[in-house]
Amino acid sequence: MKSWLPLIRPGDWLIMLASALAVGASFPIFWQGGLAERAIIRQEGRIFAEVDLKARKQYEVAGPLGTTLIAVEPGRARVVADPSPRQYCVKQGWLMRPGEIAICAPNRVSLQIAGRTRVYDSISY
């Protein structure tokens, strides 16, 4: 280990430090929207519940086909059970990042994750 240290010149340390800082800073820049903070449950397009992703909770949302079961855990949420035939929203599993959404269209229920800032899933001009 000792024989490797002299190979690093003073400027190299500077570059390494600056790079490490740049890499560290790139995380919040590229992973914007911050952490998953809230889950928004919608039913028929209207907000059914807005939950802080802090405690462990379960929600039963009634729809035209039956009951959609939603589980909330610290930092994540998922659709546990849904009467929709293709089970797309259930198969999506845990949603953890802001902007992620699971839509149980046949039962008209959706579960969306929100963070500090709003993230667009698409922008039209």
Partner: peptide, 18 residues
């Protein structure tokens, strides 16, 4: 072209990798 006294292969390698 960076001064060799201060910047060695490690600097070049990191910059090239980026």
């Amino acid at each position: 072209h960076l001064p060799k006294r201060w910047f060695g292969p490690v600097s070049l390698s990191i910059l090239a990798a980026f």
